[in-house]
Computed example of a mutant assay.
Amino acid sequence: MSAQTEKIEDWFDIQGLPYFAGDHAEDVEEWLLSWRILGVLVLITALAIGGGFGLGAAVDDGSTGALTGMAIFVVVLGGFAGSFLRMGTMLRWAARRTFGSLGLLIPLLTRALPLLLLAVTFLFINAEVWQVAALMSRTVLWLSVTFFGGFGLLFLLARLPEEVRAVEENVVGERIGEACQGTPAAEAALRLGGHAAPLPRFARVNLVLMMLFSQAIQVLLLAAGLFAFFVAFGALTIPESTIEAWTGQPVSSLPSAIGRSMPVTNDLFQVSVFLAAFSGLYFTVSAVTDENYRRQFFSGLAAQLERAIAVHTVYQALKDERPDDTAIDHHRDA
């Protein structure tokens, strides 16, 4: 392997693209298609069921046990995915990109927030919403938040592959060299024309996961901001007597981890969490269906995807390169 391909592989890793280089993607694919992954899933599931059942029996609350089991499953599976599957690399890249370009996030949010705030503020002062969200158990509340997050995740997984295919079709001819500028593949790209090399299955999955993590972090930031807005707005404008009239129950305090009551009622906390999670789902759907939102959200990511696809094309050509450059000619004629 040449020094240039090693530099490109290092670049892939920094850019959150562990499935673009080396043998790691092949190892992961072989592992996932074997019986070993089934054994891991069975083990994690057994651990989650055992932990959830044990805690549920200890506190005599089946719903708490179920929620605990779900949390154990997600945490352990996430740890496995982040280490062996190297999804942590993709998540770190998405976090750096999001927090490094907050200025680009603000215009997107300013387009989404006005209509979103109008909709959810109307719900926030609706008695029926308080009767539902404020009176549900804490376990049911977190299950509802999980449902909103899971539905948004499934929606993104159904739509994001289309964006990857659309970008892949545009990386042709001179665009390959242009997209490689500023990367370790820039010099070699000048010799390369034609179409981009077809992406392996896991490389395409890598791009989808990058977009998924980037969108998820943005949604979490939005939801956290809206949660703070609802708490502040409710504390300032909705007295406890109104809350009691809406819910038909006395207002309960929100205990903290140190045993003292927080200056926010439990009812306000639960309604704020519920509506913030719902708003996150609304924003997720809008960001990939509304043309204005899509243009702003994917404009920056499209350039990242083009660069990754172009560098991958050069990387594959360099790996297959012969002294007479037949591999480069092969990619040019493809």
Rank of each mutant, 00 (worst) to 15 (best):
residue 200 P to K: 11
residue 215 Q to R: 09
residue 195 H to D: 14
residue 205 V to M: 13
residue 184 P to H: 02
residue 199 L to S: 10
residue 250 P to G: 14
residue 211 M to P: 00
residue 224 A to Y: 01
residue 210 M to P: 00
residue 200 P to L: 11
residue 196 A to E: 02
residue 184 P to F: 05
residue 208 V to H: 05
residue 246 W to P: 10
residue 227 F to I: 02
residue 238 I to Y: 11
residue 230 F to M: 07
residue 227 F to E: 08
residue 243 I to Q: 03
residue 199 L to H: 09
residue 220 L to C: 06
residue 247 T to Y: 10
residue 231 V to C: 07
residue 213 F to Q: 02
residue 200 P to N: 10
residue 226 L to D: 01
residue 221 L to S: 00
residue 244 E to R: 13
residue 200 P to T: 14
residue 242 T to W: 07
residue 211 M to I: 13
residue 213 F to D: 04
residue 249 Q to I: 02
residue 208 V to S: 09
residue 186 A to L: 00
residue 242 T to K: 11
residue 195 H to P: 04
residue 237 T to Y: 11
residue 204 R to V: 03
residue 207 L to F: 08
residue 228 A to Q: 01
residue 224 A to G: 03
residue 207 L to W: 08
residue 236 L to F: 13
residue 210 M to D: 05
residue 246 W to R: 08
residue 186 A to P: 04
residue 194 G to L: 09
residue 230 F to H: 06
residue 200 P to Q: 08
residue 191 R to S: 15
residue 188 A to P: 06
residue 219 V to M: 14
residue 192 L to S: 07
residue 185 A to P: 07
residue 248 G to H: 06
residue 229 F to A: 09
residue 210 M to V: 08
residue 222 L to R: 00
residue 246 W to S: 07
residue 212 L to Q: 10
residue 234 G to P: 12
residue 211 M to S: 11
residue 244 E to F: 06
residue 233 F to N: 09
residue 224 A to I: 03
residue 196 A to S: 15
residue 228 A to T: 02
residue 203 A to C: 12
residue 204 R to W: 02
residue 205 V to A: 14
residue 188 A to R: 00
residue 223 A to M: 07
residue 211 M to N: 05
residue 187 E to C: 01
residue 222 L to T: 06
residue 192 L to E: 03
residue 216 A to S: 15
residue 183 T to F: 05
residue 227 F to S: 01
residue 245 A to G: 08
residue 203 A to V: 08
residue 195 H to Q: 14
residue 212 L to G: 03
residue 197 A to L: 00
residue 236 L to C: 04
residue 247 T to W: 03
residue 237 T to K: 08
residue 190 L to Q: 13
residue 213 F to E: 01
residue 203 A to R: 09
residue 220 L to F: 11
residue 208 V to T: 14
residue 215 Q to K: 14
residue 242 T to E: 11
residue 234 G to E: 03
residue 215 Q to G: 09
residue 249 Q to E: 13
residue 239 P to N: 11
residue 186 A to M: 01
residue 234 G to Y: 04
residue 182 G to C: 08
residue 237 T to D: 02
residue 233 F to T: 12
residue 188 A to L: 00
residue 200 P to I: 05
residue 192 L to M: 12
residue 223 A to D: 00
residue 184 P to C: 07
residue 188 A to S: 08
residue 221 L to F: 03
residue 201 R to Q: 13
residue 216 A to H: 02
residue 203 A to W: 06
residue 219 V to D: 07
residue 182 G to Y: 08
residue 250 P to A: 15
residue 233 F to S: 11
residue 197 A to I: 01
residue 213 F to W: 13
residue 193 G to R: 13
residue 241 S to Q: 10
residue 220 L to Q: 06
residue 190 L to I: 02
residue 211 M to K: 04
residue 205 V to K: 10
residue 242 T to F: 10
residue 247 T to F: 12
residue 204 R to F: 06
residue 243 I to R: 04
residue 231 V to F: 02
residue 196 A to H: 05
residue 199 L to A: 02
residue 243 I to F: 07
residue 194 G to Y: 05
residue 185 A to T: 02
residue 241 S to W: 04
residue 182 G to L: 10
residue 238 I to H: 07
residue 247 T to K: 05
residue 205 V to Y: 11
residue 185 A to L: 03
residue 214 S to H: 15
residue 238 I to E: 10
residue 194 G to K: 06
residue 193 G to T: 14
residue 206 N to L: 11
residue 230 F to W: 05
residue 221 L to Q: 00
residue 249 Q to Y: 13
residue 186 A to R: 01
residue 239 P to I: 09
residue 188 A to H: 01
residue 186 A to H: 03
residue 233 F to M: 12
residue 200 P to C: 05
residue 227 F to W: 13
residue 200 P to Y: 06
residue 200 P to R: 14
